[in-house]
Structures are given as C-alpha cells and as structure tokens.
Design a protein around this nucleic acid. Structure first.
Lengths: 224, 224
DNA sequence: TCAAAAGTGTTAGATTTACACCCATGA
DNA sequence: TCATGGGTGTAAATCTAACACTTTTGA
C-alpha cells in the first residue's frame, strides 16, 4: 500500500448548508466560527474528513452533530479547491446542502453550537468562500425544486397547499398563481389530500396534504 | 500555520472526462492505466492535486498534458469520496469534464498516452468509480446542453447546421426535427450565418455558421 | 440524370398564463 | 357580521410537435 507516497496529501473538509423554511422564508443555519483562524466570523458549519469515512458520511456526521438529525435529504454541491481559500492552510472543502424541517430541530442544540437561522436574502459576509457555496447551493436547488419532489423535505410531513406554495415562492423568489399551482398539485397523485385540517392559520381551516414517497416513482412526472 | 495538524490529510486527485464529437457520435477519451494498482484497466486520465495548485488548475494541467490544449471548456462534476473507491489507497477524486473539438487534438499525443476515443454508448468497464463519473457527466451535459450554449465547444469554430443538429442528437440520444431545429437556431442571433460553405459532406454545400460568444449574453435566451 | 444532402412554412394540439368570486369559520 | 385565509374554472395566448417537398450540384 505505498502506491501514492510520491504525492502530497491535503486536508479535506466538508461544509454543510442547512436549509430550513420558516415564517415563509428560506433560511440557512450559520454561526460564529469558534476556532482560529477566523474566530468570530460568520461561517457555515463544517468539519474535517477522516481517513476512514466517506465524504457523504462526513457530511452526515457534521449535520448530525449540529442538529441531532440523521438521514435527511442531503446532496453534494461540489468541491472548492482554490489554494488560498482558507486563511489557515491549504484545505479542499466539499460543500453539501441539507433540507430539514424546522419543527425537527432541537433549539438547545442550536444555542449550544451558536448558530442561527438567517434568511437567504440577508446573508452576511462569511468566512472563506462560504458565500459562494451558499450561492451555488441556491442555484442548484432553484433548478432542482421544479423538477424533483424535494421541497417536501423542508416541510412537516403534513402540510397545507398554501404552505407548499409559499415554500416555492420563497425558493424561486417569485409569486405563483394560486389556482394554477393547485391545478398542478392535483395532477400529481403522490401528493395526497388527508382528512385532517390545519386550523392554526385560518378560521376555516386548510386540508393537510402528504407526500407519498412510495407512490412517487421515477416515471411520475413532477413539474411545478 | 499549525491550525489543522490534529486532522488527517488525504490524497486528492482530479479525473478528466474529455468529450469529443466525431462521426456523429459523442466520444470520451480513455486509455489503459499505466500504473499500479489496476495497471492495464480502462481508465480516465487523471492526476494528483499538488499542494500549490487549485483543483481547477490541476484539472487544466491534466487536460494539457493529455491533449496539449489549454483554456478549453471545462467544468467540475463533483467529488468522489468513498473510502474504498480506489484500490490503491484512500484517495478523494474530483471529476471534471472537458469539451474539445476533435480537429484540435494531436494524434501523436493520443498514441503516446495510449488513449482512444470511445463512443459513450460503448463504454467498457473502467477502473475504480470512473464509470459512475462518466454517467454523472453525461447527466449534467444532457441537462446543460439544452439551456446553455456549450455545445459549440465540441465543434470547429465554423460548423453547419446539420453538424450542430447531429451533435444534439448524439448527446441527447434522440432524433430532432430538422425544420423545428433550424427555426430555433434562426431565432438566436448569436449563431451567425457566414458566407462560407462546407462542400465536403454534400454536393450542394451547406452554409457554415459561427457562434458569436460576444453577442451571447446572460439575457440572451438559449433553448434547444 | 440521378442520388444525396440542404433548405424551407403551416397547422393542430398541448401547455401555459391570466384572471375574480364564493365559502367557512372564529372572534 | 365581518375579516381572514381557503378553495375553485374558463378562455386567450403561447409554445410545441408533426409533417413533405423543392433545390443544388458533382459524379
């Protein structure tokens, strides 16, 4: 096992862009960096990749240590490898984004890690190239959200159509027509109406819907 | 500069998927691996990332050493980081794809590196996770080719509309309607008709067109 | 003169967009 | 009773897809 010793090794880290949907806004979990260099700067949450863990596993571990959540919707964005991207030393970072439902997170953990939800429209300047990572993540999810049923990962398992629409509006940064939106939802039979109603946001109450993952297959067509 | 010494470092490599368009087929440059482990297996061309070069620079260097070409259209696909992906040792690899025009390459270099053009429909089993990388690259370019003017990078600077259509058909793996295709081309004024004709592939001759990069702006809409 | 590729418009169907009012309920 | 958000259908406009013949020219 001495095949590659002639070559240099690099530090490899993962950074997580944790998206949440709250108060009709798309938000990202960021915090103040707790180590040098860059202590105190706004930063994504990340960690180094160990010898014996895959990139995906490292990203899951980082998400778990931050939120206590496992098996969330999580995808790689890409690798960031400019020589001087990290002021501390040469580090290649692989960025991931994750979708969580804001009901799912433990408020104490957030305080413990000193992170908070920040509206994507109000991102402060962040450490290293973290702003670029968030911009790239947004570009990816804006494209993907309209052609794959991934938005549900940002909502509770029961949600109203108004919530779903507001989610799309927040991510795509547009207004959508209520009737056209609902027309399209109705065509997708893997989005199932339940008999339950949400009575919190209106007097009349709105039916809860549910995304049926099993009913959704690759040949179902999802288009919003 | 001793911030990160507590963490382990990993080998990081880049692998290049070099696409070319020849004989109306989309092809990839692959060769027989010339080092252990896996000597003799089909493989993408790659190299390790040095301490003092960015990922993008490493990919450009690898493309240059393979083809003698610089400043080609080249984009990252993503990072591949399963623990056992490389039989030699733990290596994280960042895959890139590049588009070159087959007129542009030096046949001797290809022989020297022992690589050849292989039709994407006839890919053999390759070393490590290289087949996955090619599949992922294909997925990305199939999506991208229809919404961004990148296909021209696979053609000579002067090309006929039939060539362009065959290119799209090869990449998308479909047949396109000639009249509808040309109708759409005509709407894009950054694809310019020249007065020159290609007399090689027909007696009548077909007008050469040219992609005017400067005339194309972000708000031009490209849709094929 | 004929084979082979270049070039050219129209129409039906499908999709998308715009748009406004009634309903149910708790306060 | 009224304010608030929930829920519903239609028609015009746009976009997409299907389709066949004439032209040019070198062999």
């Amino acid at each position: 096992m001495n095949y590659y010793n002639a070559h240099s090794k690099l530090w490899v880290s993962v950074d997580c862009i944790v998206f949440g949907f709250d108060e009709n806004r798309l938000k990202v979990l960021i915090g103040r960096r707790q180590m040098d260099p860059g202590r105190g700067e706004w930063s994504l949450y990340g960690g180094f990749v160990g010898e014996d863990e895959s990139l995906d596993d490292a990203a899951s571990r980082v998400l778990y240590s931050l939120t206590g959540l496992r098996n969330r919707y999580m995808r790689q964005i890409g690798a960031y490898g400019n020589v001087n991207r990290d002021p501390g030393d040469r580090v290649v970072s692989v960025a991931y984004y994750a979708f969580i439902s804001v009901n799912d997170y433990d408020n104490k953990l957030l305080q413990k890690h000193n992170v908070e939800w920040v509206d994507i429209n109000d991102m402060p300047q962040m450490y290293s190239d973290h702003n670029t990572m968030v911009d790239d993540a947004l570009q990816i999810i804006r494209r993907k959200i309209s052609t794959a049923p991934i938005g549900f990962n940002l909502l509770p398992s029961l949600f109203t159509l108004t919530q779903l629409q507001k989610l799309y509006e927040a991510i795509l940064n547009t207004e959508l027509d209520k009737r056209n939106f609902r027309k399209r939802i109705k065509e997708m039979d893997f989005i199932e109406k339940t008999e339950l109603k949400d009575k919190l946001s209106s007097k009349r109450g709105a039916f809860y819907y549910r995304f049926n993952k099993k009913a959704y297959t690759e040949d179902s067509n999802f288009k919003l």
